[in-house]
């Protein structure tokens, strides 16, 4: 079973190396790593060039300009589709995600035959688990309710970017994937189109470096844009 770990990275020079180091414990025959440099203007590209020469199971693609997390993730999904991977694991470059949770996430995806399995910070009973800031938690709960209301499925962490895509999801998202802030939209799209969606407990940390793509005034834009996108998606006809 071949799994591609897709790491979108925009100006992540401070945390990228430690994130890649943490993944070194994984079986290199089963796991391949693809870092998608989203037009970084710091030392990210240099780190990737050097690291890819010394790490056999790791490669990278560099987008010519900064295009946003959705485009970066989709580039990884296109790569996975072209190279016939069974699963894609989306993993943050900033050290928020925990390598120990990868096995559980993939197991949940294979055992339950899921097309999309989301790593949820709220299903993890560990007290030390980072459960995001209070404001973010309000946003997460809002989207969980919205998706629950419109799709009739219970999810706890719809904004989590720690997730596994199966073959069906890889194939459809390689063709079309939400642009910016894609996580809740992609999750809703899957439920609406009859793809199998589930969650698995995941451990998360406070980010080690980089800057979140969702800040200040963008939070308002994020909430409005994603809400509109989900509501409009609800009135589309099935696409698969």
């Amino acid at each position: 079973m071949a799994t591609l770990i897709v790491i979108p990275a925009f100006n992540e020079e401070s945390s990228l190396l430690s994130t890649l180091d943490s993944l070194a414990c994984l079986d290199s025959t089963e796991f391949h790593i693809l870092v998608v440099d989203d037009g970084s203007n710091d030392g990210t590209a240099a780190i990737l060039r050097e690291r890819s020469q010394s790490t056999e199971n790791m490669t990278f693609v560099s987008l010519p300009m900064n295009a946003g997390i959705g485009v970066a993730v989709q580039t990884g999904l296109i790569y996975a589709h072209n190279h016939d991977y069974d699963y894609v694991l989306q993993y943050d470059a900033d050290g928020q995600h925990s390598v120990e949770s990868i096995d559980g996430l993939l197991r949940a995806a294979t055992v339950d035959n899921l097309d999309l399995c989301v790593g949820s910070r709220f299903l993890n009973a560990d007290e030390s688990n980072f459960k995001s800031t209070p404001v973010r938690r309000i946003g997460i709960r809002f989207f969980a309710r919205l998706i629950g209301l419109l799709a009739g499925v219970h999810v706890t962490d719809p904004t989590s970017g720690f997730r596994v895509y199966g073959r069906r999801a890889i194939a459809v998202f390689a063709q079309q994937y939400p642009d910016d802030f894609p996580e809740p939209e992609a999750l809703f799209w899957c439920t609406r189109n009859g793809l199998r969606v589930g969650e698995s407990a995941a451990k998360m940390h406070v980010r080690q470096g980089g800057v979140s793509s969702i800040r200040y005034a963008r939070t308002v834009y994020y909430m409005i844009k994603v809400t509109i996108a989900i509501i409009i998606d609800r009135i589309r006809s099935k696409e698969v």
Binding site: Q53, F60, V61, L63, P64, M65, V71, T75, I78, Y79
Partner: peptide
């Protein structure tokens, strides 16, 4: 333009791998 830039990035990776 997004699809084009993705194709360029993926092709560049392919060329790099072949050269290596």
């Amino acid at each position: 333009s997004i699809r084009l830039s993705q194709e360029i990035a993926l092709l560049e990776q392919r060329i790099r791998t072949l050269e290596t």
